[in-house]
């Protein structure tokens, strides 16, 4: 078998193998690139609401919690409660952290829900998993490198690396160098 045929087989099959993770990384990459403007992993809703705590024993955390959860119609499982200070109580329920300001009869809610697909994509792309995934991700990076190199030699002639391919490859190298020059 000629070397170019072997090259093309490697390029084709690695391309198939890398497709899924590449798409996942594309999604996560764009999402994380704009982390300054939004939260790519969680959808968070913050709100302040008035509650009526008249007649409630403000020394009793359990009573306050029951009353607040009832008024907010919050039915998610309770995780914990914590009295931060005399005027502040924190109530933790699943996907909602509630801060009760007793002196102002106000609650601040921070509801967080994992963004479907993006949470999982970021989990893998940013290597939250660690352990075995680190090695797999290294292999994937290596495969991408091989894909890039074999990609240069798929075609020959005017459209290959000795023709138009050379110019496009040079442009692809020069673009990041330009930005390095511009910003450093």
């Amino acid at each position: 078998m000629k070397w170019r045929k072997i090259n093309n087989v490697i390029h084709r099959d690695l391309g198939y193998l890398c497709f899924g993770l590449t798409i996942l990384y594309v999604i996560s990459g764009i999402a994380v690139n704009h982390i300054q403007d939004w939260n790519p992993t969680y959808s968070i809703t913050r709100s302040t609401t008035a509650v009526d705590l008249s007649g409630v024993d403000l020394q009793n955390n359990n009573t306050i919690t029951l009353e607040v959860l009832s008024q907010l119609d919050e039915q998610s499982p309770l995780k914990n409660i914590f009295r931060v200070d005399a005027n502040t109580l924190k109530i933790f329920v699943k996907n909602n952290n509630i801060t009760v300001y007793l002196d102002r009869s106000e609650v601040f809610q921070e509801k967080s829900i994992k963004r479907p697909l993006l949470f999982e994509a970021n989990f893998l792309h940013l290597n939250h998993a660690k352990k075995l995934w680190t090695w797999f991700a290294d292999l994937y990076a290596l495969a991408l490198g091989i894909l890039a190199i074999t990609g240069l030699f798929v075609l020959r002639g005017k459209k290959g690396i000795t023709g138009r391919g050379a110019w496009l490859t040079a442009a692809g190298i020069l673009i990041p160098i330009f930005f390095l020059w511009l910003y450093t």
Binding site: N39, D85, N97, S112
Partner: peptide, 23 residues
């Protein structure tokens, strides 16, 4: 008790103190 978690990067947490009002 973990009072708060960095929502964007998960890069910090606040842990409650054993003394009221501190973390």
């Amino acid at each position: 008790i973990i009072l708060d978690v960095c929502s964007k990067r998960g890069c910090w947490i606040y842990v409650a103190s054993d003394r009221q009002g501190e973390k």
